[in-house]
């Protein structure tokens, strides 16, 4: 862990083998060990080692990084050329059907079965997932209301708008109540209100029941709004695995202050409270608060010393910072040079 000034606080640096194990301490539901996938004579995923345990895991990376390939491999569409992957303890190759029984999948591209009404389409998908006929019908209706397409459920799927098709794809993915939900670019082609609605739905699913989600996206903001863990891929390798929750918690305790008045006495007071204090320049203070000190205590100290707090900022190590840093680190790792 490095100090202030925006360096990584809790983001594990990529290990030489490209591994990450943020979720090792939580009950993890996915595990990759040396996972490599070759497609069309090209290595698309290269020696992935990670465990995932977040409720909602964001799969990030530039185009062509291997996000969709990783999802497809977990779904059993592609066979690993080396290593293995497990989902809920089941091997994705040996027990492919068992794994797929647990998963709901929303593909990136437009996907539907033409010539059917929305509810019939979702019902069929539910039955193919193993739901009995009556349950599938009930759940198809529920899924349509859940995603906000209740009034359009008797329309033919091919007549839906782009946003409605996205929602119908989500409905078919959740209809059978999967334990794990793969959402590949769920906000693709959506206007801002529809995007907001989609993210709200994703958060709703995340916060209900036991379902785990994997959201693959190249839109950092989408991932930031939904996910508590991110797996960042670059060129088929893991660039970083990051627990966003602990990142957010640590950010809340990291402050930049600008004050007017008795600066030295204020610094002494902060140190007496147990804060780590630095002064990058005369105008600004940098403080890391211990767990038992709240921001209100700083205001109390300032009032006691007649010091004005002119500015107080949380350090914001946004997902964009994390992503860019991971990209830089990966680039350094690939070239073998030192920063």
């Amino acid at each position: 862990m490095t100090d202030a000034a925006g360096s990584s606080l809790s983001v594990p640096a990529p290990k030489p083998d490209g591994s990450g194990t943020v979720a090792a301490t939580r009950g993890h539901w996915a595990e990759f060990r040396g996972l490599s996938v070759d497609l069309g004579g090209r290595r698309v995923l290269n020696d992935l080692n990670a465990t995932l345990g977040g409720r909602c895991v964001g799969l990030l990376g530039p185009n062509g990084a291997g996000k969709t390939t990783l999802l497809n491999t977990l779904l059993g569409f592609f066979k690993p050329s080396a290593g293995h992957a497990r989902v809920f303890g089941r091997d994705v190759v040996r027990d492919s059907a068992g794994v797929r029984q647990l998963i709901g999948y929303m593909p990136e591209r437009d996907s539907f079965v033409g010539g059917m009404t929305g509810v019939r389409f979702v019902r069929m998908m539910g039955e193919l997932s193993g739901l009995p006929r009556d349950d599938a019908l009930d759940r198809a209706h529920e899924a349509f209301f859940r995603v906000g397409l209740g009034e359009a459920r008797y329309r033919k799927v091919e007549t839906y708008s782009q946003g409605m098709k996205q929602l119908a794809k989500l409905a078919q993915a959740i209809a059978h109540g999967p334990r794990l939900l793969f959402l590949d670019e769920p906000t693709n082609g959506l206007d801002p209100p529809a995007r907001s609605r989609m993210l709200q739905l994703v958060r709703g699913i995340r916060d209900t029941g036991d379902t785990r989600l994997v959201v693959s996206s190249h839109l950092l903001r989408d991932v930031e709004e939904c996910c508590d863990e991110v797996l960042i891929l670059k060129n088929g390798r893991i660039a970083s695995v990051c627990d966003l929750e602990s990142e957010r918690r640590s950010n809340r305790k990291f402050l930049f202050l600008q004050i007017k008045g008795a600066q030295e006495r204020f610094v002494e007071g902060l140190v007496a409270l147990g804060c780590e204090v630095g002064m990058p320049n005369r105008r600004r203070l940098r403080a890391v608060l211990p767990a038992d000190v709240e921001i209100a205590d700083l205001y109390a100290l300032a009032a006691e010393l007649s010091v004005q707090i002119r500015q107080l900022d949380h350090k914001r190590d946004s997902l964009e910072d994390i992503f860019l840093r991971a990209m830089d680190d990966a680039a350094v790792g690939e070239t073998g040079s030192t920063p």
Binding site: F77, V113, G114
Partner: peptide, 18 residues
């Protein structure tokens, strides 16, 4: 033909259907 044209195969094969 319609299933392939509408890209429905990922939906079928992501389920426990071979």
């Amino acid at each position: 033909a319609p299933d392939l044209k509408d890209n429905a195969m990922p939906l079928y094969l992501s389920r426990p259907v071979t």
